[in-house]
Simulated assay, not measured.
Amino acid sequence: MNKLGNLRPTIRLSITNPASDSGSMFGRGIANLCLGVRETGSLNAAAKSMGMAYSKAWRIVKNTEAALDIQLLDRDGAHGSTLTEAGDKILDAYVAINDKLQEQAEKEFARILG
């Protein structure tokens, strides 16, 4: 098999608010943070699992919420965080679309390479 067979396309999906002037968007990083919050119930734990400082995670969430004009997380101080209904929906949509596009990209890449 030639070396092209070892390659794999990678999809970089982002969700933006066209009305926002901010460069912040809902992409892979914030999606991973939200998945971590969903699994652990804590933004701090999600950030730590990604090797990220809590302050950076907090800034990413706040900037993304401002850019999208939606609240992603409900924060309960020392009791952790949960995704809001909107946060759950955007995360589910992101994961579903990303997975489908990734699968299609891999099939198309394999077809083109023959």
Rank of each mutant, 00 (worst) to 15 (best):
M1S: 14
K3S: 10
K3R: 08
L4I: 05
L4C: 05
G5S: 08
N6Q: 09
R8P: 02
R8T: 02
P9N: 01
T10I: 06
I11Q: 06
R12K: 09
R12A: 02
L13P: 00
L13M: 04
L13Y: 03
S14D: 12
S14L: 09
S14Y: 00
I15N: 01
T16H: 01
T16L: 02
T16A: 02
P18K: 11
P18S: 09
S22L: 09
S24N: 10
S24M: 07
G29R: 07
G29A: 02
A31G: 02
N32E: 12
N32H: 05
L33S: 00
C34Y: 01
C34P: 01
C34G: 08
G36V: 01
R38I: 05
R38N: 03
E39S: 13
E39F: 04
E39A: 07
T40Y: 06
G41L: 03
G41P: 06
S42I: 04
L43S: 07
N44W: 04
N44S: 14
A45V: 06
A45R: 14
A47K: 04
S49N: 15
M50N: 07
M50A: 14
M52V: 13
M52W: 08
M52G: 06
M52S: 10
A53N: 14
A53Q: 15
Y54F: 15
Y54A: 13
K56E: 08
K56S: 13
A57G: 10
A57V: 09
W58Y: 11
W58T: 11
I60H: 07
V61R: 13
V61C: 13
V61S: 05
K62M: 12
K62I: 11
T64K: 05
A66I: 12
A66Q: 15
A67N: 05
A67H: 01
A67D: 03
A67V: 04
L68R: 03
L68V: 06
D69C: 10
I70R: 01
Q71Y: 00
L72H: 00
L72P: 03
L72E: 05
L73A: 00
R75P: 01
R75L: 10
R75F: 04
D76Q: 03
G77R: 04
G77K: 01
G77F: 00
G77E: 07
H79E: 06
G80S: 04
G80R: 01
S81I: 01
T82I: 09
L83A: 04
L83C: 05
L83P: 07
T84W: 02
T84G: 03
T84Q: 05
E85S: 11
E85D: 14
G87A: 14
G87F: 02
D88T: 12
D88R: 15
L91K: 04
L91H: 03
D92M: 12
V95R: 05
A96I: 09
I97N: 04
I97C: 11
D99K: 15
K100N: 11
K100L: 08
K100A: 15
K100D: 08
Q102N: 05
Q102P: 07
E103V: 10
Q104G: 09
A105F: 13
A105G: 10
A105Y: 06
A105S: 14
E106P: 09
K107R: 14
E108I: 13
E108N: 14
A110K: 13
A110W: 05
R111T: 07
R111L: 10
R111W: 02
I112V: 15
G114T: 11
G114N: 15
